[in-house]
Design a protein around this nucleic acid. Structure first.
Lengths: 264, 264
DNA sequence: CATTGAGTTGCGACATACGCAACTAGGACC
DNA sequence: GGTCCTAGTTGCGTATGTCGCAACTCAATG
């Protein structure tokens, strides 16, 4: 999102360049939103004449971007979209899309940023961007970390059903006095995470270590990864944590958006 | 090479409707094929002036359909495509109904689960749920895959008549030494699939790749989609495959039931 | 420092895409 | 079964929006 240029244009609706193309793409958006729509309805939304809408739709249809119910029916998105999506996802993975956002987050917060995914019975760290602070936690990438004792773990678990959680956690070993060791507490924590959309863990894995994590979701809304900011507890007090929570959430949401989440 | 000459000068192709929209969509096709391209390159493929290509691309960018590498870079498909794809699959009731079942199957088996439908002359993957690791190894969604070299393909073909099969497979290209390349063998395989109610493909598309698929049927009993579990051959040996076959069949049957099959 | 090559923008000519209105066909209501 | 009504489809002339040109900016390369 080219920072400057875009901000100026989306105030109301600026002439985006090629009118008919803009309209055609808007039709796709409309169909994405409504699921199905007739020519007249589309024309209404666009504020153009029926025939114009029809021709645009016909062109989209020729490219497989939309399909018609049958003979005379309404229109809906077509498989051409999926073909394009295939080509997009080919080069799309969480780490790549998240990298620039993580860098920015690390620079803004000064703390270490991590991306983690669920791997069998543990949290797998797949990327890390160090903060500016000299006091550096070691590199977690490639490490397997307990699911129940980290903010990332709780976020990842929050996307699973209760059964799946139990299956992945036969035991709840303790690492510090603050580690969650009972299923009841864990269940409560996960419900809270689901509700709030973030997780915080203070001194649960290691004394003096605080982390804030938020979920990264794919186009279907599934939690596929977790993004966290972590640092020493003395730097991340209650106040600072409160400040950082929305920042972490925004970053995670932005990554999710890049992965196609947000249409629903 | 499919296009570039869509609306050129010759009358081979019927006027596709709106020229600029046609060109814009062709740009998306080009980017899907090349992965990345600059304005000049696109203009060359389209046979139009640089500035024309630029304006079309700019319009696509305003809708998030393409993105620019940075400041002055090349263009590639953007996240808008994924948003649309999400809306497209959300509309397919097969995907909707199958989603939760797929997730369970993926969790239970630890392998990747796919839903595929027949699209012209290939298998079109419309949904995928990764196995143990939430990090998707390779997302096939939107990809077109040969019909005769995959378990999904065989399942989908098994619902067609012999004539239809021939019509969709003018040739049987080989991908590995184990690919089915003769019609006689294919016919035998399909008969077996019909008889057994599942298909297995080992090293037929790619060496080291094994897949098990079963049909999803609608209320009329037609095969409308295929559900598969796939993974590396070293993890899916004979024994494991034998274990998984009924599991895959059960899952597919459950989806079929939700779509109204067998309930009447 | 010149040069090349890429993306970007103002402008005028003219091709094109638009709106209009007439047409067709399916469905609903009588 | 007929008639009306709605919604998708098509021919046509014209104003509109789009295209090609050429000039510009900016980076990288020599």
């Amino acid at each position: 999102m080219r920072t400057a240029s875009l901000a100026s244009t989306d105030g109301t609706e600026a002439a985006p360049g090629v009118q008919s193309v803009d309209r055609a793409l808007t039709i796709l958006d409309i169909l994405a939103r409504l699921g199905e729509a007739g020519v007249t309805e589309i024309a209404g939304e666009l504020g153009v004449h029926k025939s114009t809408a029809f021709r645009l739709v016909a062109t989209l249809e020729a490219h497989g971007m939309v399909e018609q119910n049958e003979g005379r029916g309404k229109y809906r998105l077509g498989v051409g979209v999926l073909r394009l999506a295939g080509a997009t996802t080919a080069r799309l993975d969480v780490v790549q899309e998240a990298r620039s956002i993580c860098r920015k987050l690390a620079a803004d917060s000064g703390e270490t940023v991590n991306i983690a995914v669920l791997s069998d019975r543990s949290v797998l760290y797949v990327d890390q961007v160090a903060g500016q602070s000299a006091l550096q936690a070691h590199n977690w990438v490639g490490q397997h970390i307990p699911l129940h004792a980290t903010s990332n773990g709780k976020v990842l678990l929050s996307g699973l059903s209760s059964d799946e959680v139990d299956a992945r956690l036969p035991r709840l070993p303790s690492y510090t006095p603050d580690t969650v060791t009972t299923r009841a507490k864990l269940r409560r924590d996960l419900a809270l995470v689901r509700d709030q959309g973030y997780a915080v863990a203070v001194d649960e894995l290691e004394i003096g270590l605080t982390a804030i994590a938020a979920p990264i979701r794919n186009a279907h809304g599934d939690v596929i990864a977790s993004l966290s900011v972590s640092g020493p507890t003395f730097r991340l007090g209650d106040l600072r944590v409160k400040e950082l929570i929305p920042v972490v959430q925004d970053a995670a949401d932005e990554v999710s958006r890049r992965l196609g989440h947000g249409s629903s």
